[in-house]
Nucleic acid binder design. Structure first.
Length: 585
RNA sequence: GCGCCCGUAGCUCAGCUGGAUAGAGCGUCGGCCUUCUAAGCCGAAUGUCGCAGGUUCGAAUCCUGCCGGGCGCGCCA
């Protein structure tokens, strides 16, 4: 438990005591009470709004309530002093040894420091990427992929049991087109061009490569055969091969999902019919005619009765069609079946990571899943906005393999996996992201990946020097845990310890908000704080980490550096970025 | 037309789900290398938090209405 939560519970308990002793009314509200790190340094270590929250319902002024509570808080052995400030804030200053103990906890717990149990006993299904198996992944997919992967790690860090899932859209019409495109390439290989390029032809080079493989595998077997003979087989073959490509791309990014669910298998198991029957039984299906959307030119619009799901009963804007004009299921229908499948596999907490262009789809899926599960499922949908690839501020143009877009493997080859992963998290998921592939490789303050890695590497640099100056054994973790941390009493050192001690809170809040970018921002701040302390020695010799005539002080300072390193490394591990011990070769 | 997202320093963005005097980087200007790696650090200047109302002890944050930008809106997935 982090100290903010700890004091939150403590203060609430004390307030209950006061209520029992009739000092405060019993019905006063405790819910909105929070304990936070204050923004201003002179506001102490913890700021609590309890008095103001209580004053809301009780007809007492906040200041006198604050006085009442502060008398209780001051009895805690960790508390140095309590100030009442502003409109009724309780500003709590903790004894220095509390912070020293926090640092000691980091050294004892190692990377487990920051683990939380807020998700203990809960399982959650995170579905991400789920790109159509029609070609290699591109940059837009990379963002959703990294986001989903890091969100999963973050949830695991806070105790959730996470299933990382990929939904393979291997059933729609675009798969037929893909197979026909491959067939065309196959014919080309064998010197026959009479088979026309199909409508919506996939032009990427990867299909030429695949056609090579197919010729080697099946020789001329499919040549001059009717489509009905080769289409089913080649569809299956192409999807399998595309999924190999995609999984390769994902593994280049360090992503390995445990569960792959095929749309085709959902359909073949009759799940779509099940969904239709369920909705029908609930009276949520009818045949109707949709209005054409206003503001759009309905050129080819023809009014047509179709089978509709009454999603407006569940908060959607219009009712949604389940069947196309050719009587086949819409994507929506099979997607409902897929989500029902998740529920039947035992998941009630679902997260889907989608591209922002699918935003208009959220309400209907939530409506559908609510209808199918009686509201038992909580489905969160995270949208990732576009990524704009830049080269020194100009739009990047480095695409070759896929025809029209930059692929993940091109990007990873160019800047490296760690850079891709980190940069993808330097923006909130729902804000657009500019990814400058030149700047992302710079070794400068501009490049957050470098900046954080540099701080991490510097910690090793200090350790090496300390070990050179004394005997190495004095600095192993066991000895550092036991050393006298009270020697760390400079304001800069204490400030750094406090920032390190913030880590568990950052983790919990990022997890609750489902916002992995907060980890990246925090690491940047932590690195900055360390670089700053590091440079202090230029103004004042006494800031030297390694003090050659003082082993105890050097141990204490190295303990601080190791604590910092542990947190950085633990943060980078959540991001899936490898912490480096040295930056120059 | 409707729905979702966004609007914060010259630029790019944070802002801890309602807290105190709104922050960081870049850029600009001015400092710090006989170095525990200057691949870095320090200082200065910079704001109608899009606009207008509302909710309350307290709003960049929540609600409503505008303005401006992005995405989407049956027979694609």
């Amino acid at each position: 438990m982090n100290i903010y939560n700890y004091f939150n519970s403590f203060i609430k308990a004390e307030i209950k005591e006061l209520q029992l002793k009739d000092k405060l009314p019993l019905d006063s509200i405790i819910d909105g009470i929070s304990v936070d790190p204050p923004r201003q340094i002179n506001h102490g270590d913890l700021a609590c709004n309890a008095a103001m929250v209580l004053a809301k319902k009780v007809k007492l002024d906040p200041i006198s309530i604050a006085k009442l509570i502060s008398k209780r808080i001051i009895t805690h052995s960790d508390v140095e002093k309590v100030d009442i400030a502003g409109p009724g804030f309780l500003n709590i200053t903790l004894k220095k040894n509390v912070w020293h103990d926090q640092l000691r906890n980091v050294l004892k717990a190692g990377e487990k420091f920051g683990d939380s149990e807020i998700g203990k006993g809960k399982s959650i299904n995170v579905e991400y990427v789920s790109a159509n198996p029609t070609g290699p992944l591109h940059v837009g997919h990379a963002r959703g992929a990294v986001f989903g992967d890091v969100l999963s790690s973050l949830l695991e860090k806070t105790g959730y049991e996470v299933t990382r899932e990929y939904y393979i859209n291997d059933a729609g019409a675009q798969i037929d087109i893909l197979a026909r495109s491959l067939y065309r390439r196959y014919c080309e290989k064998l010197g026959q061009e009479s088979y026309e390029k199909p409508e919506g032809f996939y032009p990427g080079e990867y299909l030429i490569d695949l056609a090579d493989k197919l010729v080697i595998k099946d020789k001329k077997h499919w040549l001059d055969k009717p489509e009905s003979e080769w289409l089913p087989e080649l569809s299956r073959y192409t999807v399998d091969e595309m999924m190999k490509l995609i999984r390769k791309d994902l593994s280049d990014l360090g992503i390995e999902q445990s569960t792959f669910i095929s749309e085709k298998s959902i359909v073949e198991r009759g799940m779509v019919d099940t969904v239709l029957n369920m909705l029908d039984e609930k009276g949520l299906i009818y045949t109707g005619v949709l209005e054409p959307p206003k503001g759009m030119k309905p050129e080819s619009w023809e009014e047509r009765p179709q089978k509709l799901f009454r999603s407006t009963s569940f908060g959607d804007d219009i009712d949604r069609p389940l069947k196309k004009s050719d009587d086949s299921w819409t994507y929506f229908a099979s997607d409902l079946a897929y989500h029902l499948d998740k529920y039947k596999r035992g998941f009630t907490n679902l997260i889907n990571v989608w591209g922002a262009d699918h935003g208009g789809y959220i309400k209907r899926v939530q409506a559908g899943i609510n209808a199918l599960t009686e509201g038992n499922v909580n489905l969160d949908i995270k949208l990732c906005q576009l990524v704009r690839l830049l080269e020194n501020g100009e739009a990047a143009k480095m695409s070759k393999r896929a025809g029209t877009y930059v692929t993940i493997s091109e990007l990873v080859d160019y800047v490296g996996r760690d850079v891709v992963r980190f940069i993808m998290l330097t923006r909130k998921n729902d804000a657009q992201l500019d990814f400058d592939i030149i700047k992302a490789q710079e070794q400068s303050r501009d490049n957050p990946v470098f900046y954080v890695q540099y701080a991490h590497a510097r910690s090793y640099s200090v350790e090496r020097m300390a070990k050179d100056a004394f005997n190495a054994q004095s600095f192993d973790y066991k000895n550092l845990q036991k050393c006298d941390l009270s020697l760390l009493n400079g304001s800069d050192e204490l400030a750094l310890i406090k920032l390190i001690a913030l880590w568990p809170r950052i983790v919990e809040m990022a997890s609750e908000a489902q916002e992995p970018h907060r980890i990246a921002f925090y690491l940047n701040e932590l690195a900055s704080s360390f670089h700053s302390l590091w440079s202090k020695v230029r103004e004042d010799e006494s800031f030297r980490f390694v003090v050659t005539d003082n082993l105890e002080l050097t141990q204490a300072r190295l303990a601080l550096v190791c604590g910092l390193r542990t947190v950085i490394s633990s943060g980078l591990n959540i991001l899936g970025v490898e912490p480096l011990e040295e930056l120059r070769g």
